[in-house]
Design a protein around this nucleic acid. Sequence first.
DNA 1: TATTATTGCGCAATCGTTCCCGGGACCGTC
DNA 2: GACGGTCCCGGGAACGATTGCGCAATAATA
Lengths: 338, 338
Amino acid sequence: MFEPFTLKDIAKALGLSTSTVSRALRDTHEISPQTKKIVLEYAQKINYRPNPIALSLKERRSKSIGVSLSEVANPYFSRVINGIESIAYDRGYHVIITQTHESYEREKINIEHLASRSVDGLLVSLSAETSDTSYLQNLHQRGLPIVFFDRVAKEIETHKIIANNEKGAFEATEHLIQQGCRRIAHLTSSDHLSISVERLNGYKQALAKYQVPFDETYVKYCAHGGMSQQETEIAIKELMNLKQKPDGIFVASDRLSIGCLVVFKELKIKVPEEMRITGFCNSDVLDLMSPTLTSVCQPAFEMGRLATDMLLNLIESKYPVHDFEKKILDTSLFVRNN
Amino acid sequence: MFEPFTLKDIAKALGLSTSTVSRALRDTHEISPQTKKIVLEYAQKINYRPNPIALSLKERRSKSIGVSLSEVANPYFSRVINGIESIAYDRGYHVIITQTHESYEREKINIEHLASRSVDGLLVSLSAETSDTSYLQNLHQRGLPIVFFDRVAKEIETHKIIANNEKGAFEATEHLIQQGCRRIAHLTSSDHLSISVERLNGYKQALAKYQVPFDETYVKYCAHGGMSQQETEIAIKELMNLKQKPDGIFVASDRLSIGCLVVFKELKIKVPEEMRITGFCNSDVLDLMSPTLTSVCQPAFEMGRLATDMLLNLIESKYPVHDFEKKILDTSLFVRNN
DNA sequence: TATTATTGCGCAATCGTTCCCGGGACCGTC
DNA sequence: GACGGTCCCGGGAACGATTGCGCAATAATA
């Protein structure tokens, strides 16, 4: 059906050998200018493109990188993707995106699929469900370059790039305190996610600074990162059934914030009058939401760019790299009218 | 660095030929059960995976499909992607997603890149800028299976799958009329986009039905589909500078609706008191927006599934297909409190 | 004129896999 | 004992591209 032209086609048409054609196209010095001209013009005419699959086989690399993240619909991740693409395309790499939808099973399948598809490297942000990363360690030990972003695996030694979640969480919590909240709950994702740990730390630190006692029952985890609204609903209702209801919530993610607002709307609890909320966000629609939320903004695009740059450097490095770095990008608190 | 095992490795280790190993793994009848057992066990042990690149070269197909759409951050498209993946993975295909960001140039580069990467087929929703589809026609004529979804090219004969934009637009406009609006503007994307034409038609039909005169100056096009907020702002301000200001706007897309709301917020024009808006939407955050918008919902996930199914059937068809269909999926009007 | 560089190009191997073909080993039959 | 037929298995070409090597023909030099 769809049969692109090959070197052989050109060679046959011009009465040359494939090697000559190949060399002519690559502009080697050992081909005469006339021959080059003839070949180039003909190749131009039929719009010849070298078969990248044959090239991959020969060069043993595919010039493509795999990305695993929870879901592209998340504005944070779609910005990261834009950052990734901006670098990858410039350096001649393809980007293959896979979504885990916060499922460990999907993540494993996707990533092993990517590896067997001979991607040259991997950009990974772990799913909320993932606690066992042995399959990733396996790939990594066998030499597949991997760079983690956002949600990293502490047990795997490679480049990592994260936002300053601690500082962000600290500021968000501090903001609630400064607004007068004293019973501040924390709604977050799965407890084994690196970002959850970091944000919890920031939250605790802010409480400590203002001598607000830390209360374990005020921290609610959503193992699926709010993928099911039910999960969020249960967590919020548990919080609201406490004797000492919280008067503020620091929510650790975009998706959870939205779910949260939906629940409060159902419960007819007014935000921010009866309940103050701050979150981590990246939505451009957030300004339009009612109520608007004060939130921590992450440099998503920049994270994508940096992670990709690091990965491609790993891939293209001539010698095995053992010196890995962990970059922490600053967040900024976006104070809105509550 | 990362060197997976090959048939040759197995063959050498077991003292067999590669052909025997290959056949044993594919369970051919002409290999003895013992040999098969030995080979299979060894392959299992070293976790052998056939090199998909070598396979692609041999089979001359990559078991992957390319997708071109404006941007994954758009909730409509991210739902479509989920639909696409749900089918593709089941049938053993990879999905490579590219974003045009509504740019013709990017679209052309991406798609030609995909084609040269030997994708087996293409799922395309045109960018807002695209008016010349000759490069697509080229690929299509050379036998590359293509299925259009959402924004289709009328000049290319292949499967197409769209939402019932006319009906949707009709209902959205009718809703405005029923709410009492009489000077209804229409804010839409690029004028050569199929969806724009279809939605404009629906808009006109609704006006006609209720004997509201159609006024050309009430229709504003945004060539970049609202990718730049400036574009939206200019359009809205032009509308608001008319002697007869509109009292309602039917907005043709998600992104434009959001941009629209931002502008009205700036202009301190109250929605829906001073200006009623209905839109096309797919955001799950839309329920939380203030004001909430009555909007037309498209079956995005289903469109992705259907389009992919059709594409894979094209790809796997033994004979050239000349009988193409155009599927139109129903939309539904989601009436919210305005 | 004879020998050596230089130029310009083709042959063939390679990447990992599949598959056509061919060829031994073994059995049964005449 | 010779021959035909299975049964198993290996050799080698092919997919499309790159590249080291070799080899003509020409040019330069002794």
